[in-house]
Every structure is written in C-alpha cells, then in structure tokens.
Design a binder for these strands. Sequence first.
DNA 1: ATCAATGGTAAGCCTCCACTAACGGTAAGC
DNA 2: GCTTACCGTTAGTGGAGGCTTACCATTGAT
Lengths: 101, 101
Amino acid sequence: MDAALQTGLEALGDSTRMAIFQKLSAGPLAVNELAGMLPVSRPAVSQHLKVLKDAGLVTDRKSGTRRYYALDPEGVARLRAHFDALWDRSLHAFQVAAEKR
Amino acid sequence: MDAALQTGLEALGDSTRMAIFQKLSAGPLAVNELAGMLPVSRPAVSQHLKVLKDAGLVTDRKSGTRRYYALDPEGVARLRAHFDALWDRSLHAFQVAAEKR
DNA sequence: ATCAATGGTAAGCCTCCACTAACGGTAAGC
DNA sequence: GCTTACCGTTAGTGGAGGCTTACCATTGAT
C-alpha cells in the first residue's frame, strides 16, 4: 500500500492529535498554549507533537524557553496529494461501475 | 469541531479498515471475498464493515446468501470535501504567516 | 425437510496506546 | 548564584478496540 498515506492517517486518526492539528492550522503555538486549549496534560501534547513531527506534518522552532510548533506546508501538501489520489481512484471505480449498467 | 471529518478519520485510521476501503475501491465485494484477501477472519471484516457503514463510507446490497459491499460515492465525496477544506485552511494559514514576515 | 453456504452478533481475550506523574535539562530574570 | 518558566523523556497504568471462537439466522439447493 502507501506508507506515507497510512502514516498520515494514523497520525490524524487520534482525536487529540486531530485537535492539535486544527489548532495549529490557525497559526504557530507553543506547547503550553496548546495544552491550555486541550483537556490533556502538557506531556501528552508533547508526545502527540512528536508523532506529528515524525509524520512530517509539523515543524518546531525554539524561541527562548518556549518551543513553537507550526504545520509543515510541505508535509501537508504531500499528504493531500495522497488523499486526492485515493478519492480519485475510489470515485473513478464507482463511475465505471455506474456506466457498466 | 467537525464530527463528520472526525468520524471518517477514525474509520480510515485503522490499517485493516483502510485495506478494506482500498479493496472496495476496485469494485463491490462480498464479505467472504474480502476476508480471503486479508489476514483476518470473516467476523473481523464484518465488524469493520459495520464501522465503515456507520461512517457513511460504504453501502451494502443483499444478493442471495451473500451481501455485497461497495463504496458510497456520496459519503466519499462528503469526506473529501471536509478534507479539502482542512487542507485549504492549513495552507492558507501558512501563506498568511509567510507574508507577515 | 435437510443440508450447505453466507454472514451478522456476543463474549472474551489480549495487545496497544493515550494519558499522568515524576524527573531532568535548558533558558531567562532577579 | 538562585529561582522561575517551559519543555522533553521515562515509567507505569488504565481503558479502548481489534481479533477470534462460538453460536444463530437466513437463503438457496437437493
């Protein structure tokens, strides 16, 4: 199958990680700020961010004692391409089946 | 948040369900046929199909003793729309952040 | 009516993983 | 120096869910 697609899916499959992703889609945020918006502790957020970073969906930038996380547009675009291909294949197959009638 | 997006994500987040989705993208299949292609038992496939059906990604059609499952183009299109909106928001936010520099 | 084929469901097990608590580490301010 | 703020990591735990086994229902064939 497609490893990148599967990795991205598993990364966003968890609801908390998806929430983090949504928050970051509004702009960069520090770990504490993220933890303040979510019903989980700060270490949990840290761990989720690690997963998102390993999946190439997020980048981090250190600023003083704080560390800001932001979406990685390259990783997002790559994942989007995989999804688009998946949708196309799926809907194309349905189109063929419909015409065969 | 967006419940439909979250439901669809959790549905496809599992690797086995994703595999089922991929198989069905080639055309309708019966439960036994799906189980034969996958390293899990038939009941497991049935349970996964139930989840996919509840998420609106799959439809079932009874034919004799067999039950054929197929992708639901409407549900797929709906999920795709949510994803597209998510990508757009994400990349737009990055664009804004880049111009602000 | 009996049997085979197909599949949905229940119960139980077991693994995985999300989460917290505790610790250590680094940077800024006093 | 000391303290405060912020963060990553580890160890341990609890719960969620994926899987199998067993059972039952339905359909079609003999």
